[in-house]
């Protein structure tokens, strides 16, 4: 009896391990920080792009929704998503905070002149240190937060048409 039980256990373990392996084959090997939706963003303190000001929690708490968009003039995919940002700018419940990431000021200004400026707030992060506080690991990345500064959605890589629709939907529901 005891031996039978041990045999059963051994088979069960082997079976369990192998079936986990089989399932794991269909998992996406790439990592994304999307698990962090629902977390709160703390201690926002960004330098204003041109003025000697700080953009902080207080500024963003006024808005129903804020889309924080990390971009740079040297980043090619940022050009792809830019038209959607311009469109989103028209949403009533949404303010857009652009964070210019490791960029030169002239280039950034030229970029906005060329493609339009969708940003209600414009901040800069010349060293990239601030981006760590937002959990950014490559740009473009966008974070949609609500008035409690809780992450509603994270978009890694350029915004697509689907993302645009999603953001509009999320903002409208309010």
């Amino acid at each position: 009896m005891k031996i039978k039980f041990i045999k059963f256990i051994i088979f069960f373990i082997i079976f369990f391990v192998l079936s986990i392996f089989f399932v794991s084959l269909n998992k996406d090997p790439l990592y994304s920080t999307k698990d962090l939706e629902g977390e709160k963003i703390q201690d926002i303190s960004l330098n204003h792009f041109s003025k000697n000001e700080i953009i902080s929690n207080q500024d963003l708490k006024k808005n129903k929704f804020t889309l924080i968009n990390f971009w740079a003039s040297w980043c090619a995919p940022c050009r792809l998503e830019h038209p959607y940002l311009v469109k989103l700018n028209k949403e009533d419940n949404l303010k857009i905070l652009g964070v210019n990431f490791k960029d030169k000021k002239q280039n950034a200004i030229k970029f906005l002149n060329d493609f339009g400026n969708p940003y209600d707030y414009l901040a800069k992060d010349t060293t990239g240190k601030q981006s760590v506080n937002f959990g950014i690991y490559g740009i473009p990345e966008s974070i949609l937060i609500n008035k409690d500064l809780i992450i509603v959605k994270k978009f890694i890589g350029p915004l697509t048409y689907n993302d645009y629709i999603k953001i509009r939907g999320a903002v409208k529901n309010e």
Partner: peptide
């Protein structure tokens, strides 16, 4: 990589 450098800066701070 750029990312690694930035994180190192933040940790140093």
């Amino acid at each position: 990589s750029d990312f690694a450098r930035t994180v190192k800066l933040v940790i140093n701070d």
